[in-house]
Computed example of a mutant assay.
Amino acid sequence: MGANPLLPELEGRRVFVALGDSFTEGVGDRDERLPNGVRGWADRVAEKLAKARPGWRYANLAIRSKRLRHVITEQLEPALAMRPTLVTLYAGGNDILDLGTDMAALMDDYENLVASLAGTGATVVLFTGFDVKVSALLEPLKKRNAAYNQRVREIAAKYGAVLVDYWCLDAFHDRRMWDSDRLHMSKAGHKYLAGQVLDQLGVPHKIRPKDWDPPARLSLREWERRQRRWVNDWVLPLFGRKIRGITLGDALSPRWPEPVKVPRKGGLKKLAESRRADAGSA
């Protein structure tokens, strides 16, 4: 890959740092061979960067369930210390789902975070949120999501960030792009999004959308069965955690807390396997 104006090299360094919540951690793209049992679009982007130009180092500080305030207090300082040349940020989606969120204050904090990242000279990649059709119960939040997206677009333009306009990606209207909880992308969704990020950065790749047949129409009985399973498996446990004041990310650490050199062959799976082997021999 030749010189890419979207990915300037700062003092010869190539460091990619991913910040955020479950969206960036990789939830929905299961792989028990990798930290936290997931892979995700950010790992895939890191691997394609390393294949296109060797020497990239990668850290992923994202943890599921984190709010914007957690990203600021827990992830920003470590990210700045890594002196990144490429930063991706998606944060605020969990705040939108919290009923008491002050959207104006949230987006002011978001802008301050972006300003800090952009001030490093790194290429910053931002994302709008998608209008996930989970349930009619969440439709009142659509206005919040639209307000969030508009501010993200404005902030991206103001700070010269690369924008991945997730809201406009029609491929995600197919339910097969989503995991069984209906809130996180499936493996196919993560792969597709990785391709979109790489396209925005001008990085070559061979990721292609799934060539699916049209989705089968569900009978009323099958639809009701899926609804009951979704409520029992995801909705009730979610409300239970909210009542108890806990989240799925409370006991987790970042998947790649320090920049790792991404192997050109075998990618991050090879690195994870090597670490397990070293730990076993120790």
Results as ranks from 00 to 15, higher is better:
P78R: 02
F16N: 00
W178Q: 13
T73D: 07
D250E: 14
G245L: 13
A91Q: 01
A18M: 00
I63H: 02
V162D: 00
S186T: 10
A279Y: 10
G160T: 01
W56Q: 11
G266Y: 03
V132H: 02
D165Q: 05
A81K: 11
D174I: 07
R225V: 08
R275K: 11
K133V: 08
E25D: 01
E11H: 09
E9F: 06
D131I: 05
K51Y: 02
V132M: 11
D95H: 14
P214T: 04
A279H: 09
K143G: 08
L7N: 12
D102F: 14
V71C: 11
A81L: 10
D213V: 11
A52L: 07
R53T: 04
I63R: 06
G267W: 00
L117D: 10
K158D: 03
K269M: 13
L106N: 14
K142E: 02
R39Q: 10
A3S: 14
V87S: 08
A81T: 08
L248F: 09
K270W: 13
G189I: 05
D21Q: 07
D199Y: 10
V162F: 00
S186N: 10
L169F: 04
E11K: 04
K66Q: 15
Y90I: 04
G92D: 03
L248E: 10
V262N: 00
G249K: 08
L89D: 03
F172C: 05
Y148H: 03
A156Y: 02
T88P: 04
Y110P: 05
N145L: 01
R241Q: 14
S186W: 10
W212V: 07
D131V: 01
D43C: 03
A105I: 09
K187N: 09
Q196N: 12
L68M: 05
